[in-house]
Amino acid sequence: MPPDRSRINTLMDLASAGDEDTFGLLALAVQDGLFRLALAHGLRRDDAAEATQEALLRAYAGRGKWHRGSDAMAWLCGILVNIVREHHRRQRPRGTVSDDLARGQAAGGGPRATAGDDDPGPEELRQLREAIGRLPPRQREAIACRYLRGMSLRQTAEVMGCAEGTVKSAASSALQRLREILQKAP
């Protein structure tokens, strides 16, 4: 059961006022959501876990900057998306789960041989994740937030730090690009 947004906002209110225990409760409430969002952006499980921890650390350090009344979950997701961007820039030679899957498939060892404990799911899901991983960063973020995590247009724009029109454009382009990739896939 997903945590109530109003409860998350209340916890964030208290945490921003300096209550460390409340921030622990907030972390418990949002850690799964942040972890899934990191996975949706193409990170492997261990990298997604690290990104989640880093996002919570940054949120704790910058909890005083959070504005009361705004969406706390969107704020936290925005922090995570920034970390994911940094991760992709820093780990580009290492690649993402789709790169691992592609390398494993080329080596004939199957996707799980290189993906570690990451579970890509059935074959069609693996292909879809691989296709999402090939998207440009903005388009990948739009697909991950809008269609894989079910955020609204406004929430996606807030997380990505752009206008709603930009999100619409990026999502449309991403879907068209995904369709092309999947049609080319065997």
Binding site: D21, F23, G24, A27, L28, Q31, D32, L34, A49, T52
Partner: peptide, 9 residues
């Protein structure tokens, strides 16, 4: 999430 993301928990 595999574990606890925050030591305060």
């Amino acid at each position: 999430y595999p574990g606890l993301a925050w030591p305060a928990s």
